[in-house]
């Protein structure tokens, strides 16, 4: 009789152990937490197409446009990237400058603002047409002042 109880107790023990073990095994599973953050990547080039290698950039947060939020230097291809603070939505201003040349871009971040990408400058055709318009205006002015006055 005592032996029988010992067997039952052992079986219950094994069962409990068996139930407990898998819990320990599942504790090795992976967990993934995620947060979406926006990385802004910029490429700075001169009009001539050359990259602004080594140019310095200054990033200003929307709520404090007077104090630089981040400063740094572009790489050899004129690239740099940064992750804006998502708790400060608004227009982020980024200035890139080198030897007195440079530009400022205004990038909307957070809220309803959606900015996928942007590029400054014009295509060669646009430049050609705009130049032609101004040149024609100048030629027109010259012709106007060259005309002979009626006596």
């Amino acid at each position: 009789m005592r032996i029988k109880w010992k067997v039952i107790a052992s079986l219950i023990g094994i069962l409990v152990l068996g139930l407990a073990l898998p819990v320990k095994v599942f504790a090795h599973g992976a967990s993934i937490e995620y947060e979406v953050s926006t990385v802004i990547e910029l490429v700075a080039t001169y009009d001539s197409g050359e990259p602004m290698a080594g140019a310095q950039f200054v990033v200003y947060a929307p709520d404090d446009p007077a104090t630089p939020w981040l400063t740094g230097v572009c790489d050899d291809e004129g690239r740099f990237s940064f992750t804006p603070d998502s708790s400060r939505p608004g227009i982020w201003d980024i200035q890139v400058r080198q030897a007195g040349h440079g530009d400022i871009v205004h990038i909307p971040v957070g809220g309803d603002a959606v900015a996928v990408g942007g590029a400054g400058g014009y295509s060669k055709l646009q430049i050609g047409l705009m130049s032609a318009a101004v040149v024609w205006g100048s030629v027109g002015t010259a012709l106007y002042f060259l005309r002979k006055r009626k006596a």
Partner: peptide
Amino acid sequence: GIPKASLLTAAFFVVSWIH
């Protein structure tokens, strides 16, 4: 002098694209 100035203004305007 205005026609001459006008034409040279155009030249000055365009020439900044010549790198």
